[in-house]
Design a protein around this nucleic acid. Structure first.
Length: 94
DNA sequence: ATATAGCGGATCA
DNA sequence: TGATCCGCTATAT
């Protein structure tokens, strides 16, 4: 566990539900704009596969990139997160 | 210490 | 779109 990895995990876990960021974005936030490849490397072998929302980190644009459990699951997860976000956002009116 | 792989990204044809 | 290089970390040898 390197300091860079720690930063990556922290940053990734701050990404809001239903939103996505690019690997490059994370790399920049982690202080290594050119280490975007490393971000994937780290996320791939992350110690907390479910706790860390690595599915919110995408390649770029509409390209999801890769995912341990398959890109399809990644896409589904993102869709579900968008749904649950609406659910959580809904106001409860008396 | 060196080599290789990996959930990326940019460039070139 | 496909081929190719770049750059960084983790892991294997």
């Amino acid at each position: 566990m390197t300091p860079f990895a720690k930063k990556v995990y922290k940053i990734v876990s701050t990404i809001p539900i239903g939103e996505t960021r690019s690997y490059k974005w994370v790399a920049i936030k982690a202080g290594r704009p050119n280490a975007y490849r490393a971000v994937g490397s780290i996320l791939n072998k992350n110690p907390w596969p479910v706790t860390i929302p690595c599915h919110r980190v995408v390649k770029r644009g509409d390209d999801l990139g890769g995912y341990v459990f398959g890109v399809k699951k990644k896409a589904l997860l993102l869709i579900r997160e968008r749904e649950i976000k609406e659910f959580l956002t809904a106001r409860l009116v008396i």
